[in-house]
Design a protein around this nucleic acid. Structure first.
Length: 382
DNA sequence: AGGAGCTACACGAG
DNA sequence: CTCGTGTAGCTCCT
């Protein structure tokens, strides 16, 4: 009786059950076991080699990041993000542009970490390019010694913070992004002051705790720069994002075995999947849009609808629609503020064509009961 | 470093 | 659908 009243009329999506779509997206136990085994073996061996090398990287720690470790990976465990976190005592951050996300790094005094001196460029700025290159060389040398799987290092992408590995073993193909990350224990820069608006959602204490955590910087070059000099770094909040997704409830017990079940992660998974599928069909047109846009819109949605009751598992269709409508708004306006750096727009005017294109495609899906969700899932197409 | 204890999740049985 | 079980990952402890 109650169950009938609670069940959605599915006005949004007609006869399509989002629950059924969602169940197609979960990772198989066997696949996870196989993939994690391979990845963990390879990464452990690499870390051992990187640490033992010459002292440069001997203090790195491993941190799983991104969708696999946030448990919102869809379809297959075939992409892993691993941050190699390197503590640095003191750094001076100077904004490299007006985004508030990209910085030049210098040492106020001589660094405690003497081995970092060799990575300074002519101006005394820490060179992301040089550090990444050194790490890349160690990894390239070490993968040759890996026996239990076929591991190759993919070609360098300009300005990318990642060293991408490809692991092949029988029928499995996995890509692992290794991301060199600097960790500095100092207060967050001014550009983040008005970001992370989670007071209503996770609370003021949680916000304070987050902002007391270290700053992470990754070796990412700013594309706006006229010449890629390889000496800018970008703030990364992967550690905070992971903490928010894995502990996403307003109440402590949200989604725990004896607590209320919410559909926040379900919504994120669905929109991630929708974008993935659309990107497969329209690779070129959607070049500028990535899963981080979806994730950012997700955090804004969580902040806008902070209550666990706003995300009842039984209201999946309705919740997904609200989240989707907000994302469409962002696309139409070509305005999506970085969740931690509000003045930094992730959908700049140059991306307007992509934004408009995606907005049209999503509207089309919405008005036709998501045909792309109903096509049978094909592994080879991924 | 290694392990105990915990959680989230997939999945099979009923 | 609900429940029990097994596994990966994480935290905390020594």
């Amino acid at each position: 009786m109650v169950a009938v009243a609670v069940r959605q009329p599915s006005s949004v999506v007609g006869s399509l059950r989002l629950r059924d779509v969602l169940s197609q997206l979960s990772l198989g136990r066997q696949d996870v076991s196989e993939a994690s085994g391979l990845v963990n073996n390879v990464v452990s061996q690499l870390i051992q080699a990187i640490r033992s090398k010459d002292g440069t990287f001997n203090s790195i720690e491993r941190l799983g990041a991104g969708s696999y470790y946030e448990r919102v990976k869809t379809s297959e465990p075939n992409e892993f993000d691993i941050m190699l976190v390197m503590p640095v005592a003191r750094l001076q951050l100077d904004e490299s542009d007006d985004t508030g996300a990209y910085y030049y790094l210098t040492f106020k005094r001589n660094p405690k970490e003497k081995h970092l001196l060799e990575f300074l460029d002519e101006d005394g700025k820490l060179s992301a390019f040089k550090m990444l290159q050194a790490l890349r060389e160690i990894i390239k040398r070490e993968v040759k010694h890996i026996k239990h799987a076929e591991v190759t290092v993919k070609r360098k992408k300009a300005g990318s913070p990642a060293i991408t590995l490809e692991i092949k073993h029988s029928t499995t193909e996995i890509s692992v992004d290794i991301i060199l990350t600097l960790e500095v224990q100092q207060s967050w820069p001014p550009s983040t002051q008005d970001g992370l608006k989670i007071e209503q959602w996770l609370g003021t204490k949680v916000r304070r705790d987050f902002r007391n955590k270290s700053i992470y910087l990754v070796a990412k070059q700013n594309k706006e720069e006229k010449v890629l000099r390889g000496n800018t770094w970008r703030l990364s909040f992967s550690h905070i994002e992971k903490a928010m997704i894995n502990n996403h409830g307003q109440s402590k017990t949200c989604c725990e075995s004896d607590g209320p079940k919410c559909c926040r992660k379900a919504c994120l998974k669905l929109l991630k999947y929708l974008l993935e599928r659309l990107k497969m069909e329209h690779t070129k047109e959607l070049e500028k849009i990535c899963s981080y846009h979806v994730k950012t819109a997700f955090f804004h949605s969580c902040a806008m609808w902070p209550n666990d009751t706003d995300w009842h598992l039984g209201d999946l269709d309705h919740c997904f629609q609200k989240y989707l409508s907000y994302f469409l708004d962002c696309l139409r306006k070509s305005e999506l503020p970085h969740f931690f750096i509000p003045k930094y727009n992730l959908l700049s005017q140059q991306d307007k064509a992509s934004s408009n294109f995606l907005s049209r495609k999503i509207n089309n899906q919405l008005n036709n009961r998501f045909p792309i969700f109903q096509e049978s899932y094909c592994k080879q197409c991924l």
